[in-house]
Design a protein around this nucleic acid. Sequence first.
DNA 1: ACTGTTTCTTACCCGCGGGTAATATACGGG
DNA 2: CCCGTATATTACCCGCGGGTAAGAAACAGT
Lengths: 230, 230
Amino acid sequence: MDGSPSSATSQSPWMPFESRRRARDEKREAVLRTAVQLFLEQGYHRTTLNDVAERLNITKPALYNYFRGKDEILFECWAIGQERVDDCIDEIDSGGGTGMAKLRKLIVRYAEVMTTDYGKSLVRFDVRDLTEHNRKIVATAKKKIDRAFRRYIREGIEDGSIRPCDIKLSAFAIAGSLNWIGHWYQPGGALPGGDIASEFAIRLTEGLAAKSSRRKAAKPPTRVKRGGKR
Amino acid sequence: MDGSPSSATSQSPWMPFESRRRARDEKREAVLRTAVQLFLEQGYHRTTLNDVAERLNITKPALYNYFRGKDEILFECWAIGQERVDDCIDEIDSGGGTGMAKLRKLIVRYAEVMTTDYGKSLVRFDVRDLTEHNRKIVATAKKKIDRAFRRYIREGIEDGSIRPCDIKLSAFAIAGSLNWIGHWYQPGGALPGGDIASEFAIRLTEGLAAKSSRRKAAKPPTRVKRGGKR
DNA sequence: ACTGTTTCTTACCCGCGGGTAATATACGGG
DNA sequence: CCCGTATATTACCCGCGGGTAAGAAACAGT
């Protein structure tokens, strides 16, 4: 065998007989990258651990050096996506701006995450494939996202940047549109991810804006009706 | 209700056959009703044919009198939901009104379908669980729905009831919100299905409306141009 | 080099679940 | 009363795939 790694299809730390000494974490990540790709391509149940291992040039039991089982791999894929969304929320929360500005920012960032593999995990994977324990973690995290959407809308109504509306349903409508991106978006498609994000930010908020949608809505509304539900 | 001709007294030789066939169809439907419930409750892969049979007080092989296999059951559940949406589209297409009016109608009807079990099948089931043949049918049907959304938006822009916008992305955003209903709606929830449908129709179109959308949306603009399609 | 530890492979287990074969029961018709 | 058909049951097959046991390589430390 010549020692050259030659052309490998993807970046795999396990070149057949070559440098196998890489940090453990990098290998773990490589497993997750490969796994999330396959889970999205074929679906979780149709993807076998052999599939994952084969694409990494290793064998199935080797995976058990890094993960307890298939469901843990699934969970960690999900966790990476969730972490990215959490970061967005924390960042927005620590910043300022009107409710509408925060909402727009969240929409843009969330849409961008949805165009990535780990972002898609958040909406394409079935929580029922997880253990009871992990399922609770997911449920809590989902609640956090939902709360962020509702909070920004509520703040927007209070500061006058968003017109009164049903907060719950508006949050559902917006989150639904965004989550659905994870189902149809493909990197090879006609429209790049950034465009989608900014377009969605406009499209999804122009119905909520207090005045004309594309302008800075700093004007306090004439009548601040009690928002919320009916 | 009773389709049999003069079912009362006369012993038509066709009666036994008819009643038997009807009984068969009813059983088929019962299987589908049970199956779709379980598929939604537990997920397709976690639901075994034994589960389905058990809930019907029969045994697994009995199911094979009515269906060729598990994937056919899945497909037929999907097909029922699809048929309902198709009916909506056909009805709207055969009627009149502005593009916006048609769009609103589709949103309402589609949202209502999404709150039913068979409607949820359209978005909760994975097409990759179907045979190649059926998968193509599904793909064609999905395309039809997408085309309907885009057509109504385009007509609306042409007749002035909808302000100019990116048709493709707007259709995606609306369909995404609606499809997502199938993921979170539960009949026992706080808000009934009808409310969701009407609220969504307002929320999703107020950003698109040419003029104010809030109260008087159905008023046609100055001139009603003929739409593109018939 | 020896030795203990980590990493990875070969070979295997085994339970689950879709699907089938053989057969029993129900029932209408002649 | 017997036969044909439709319907259902019991018992079984078997392939797939997650998971494990035992041991081989690689590697680090002394």
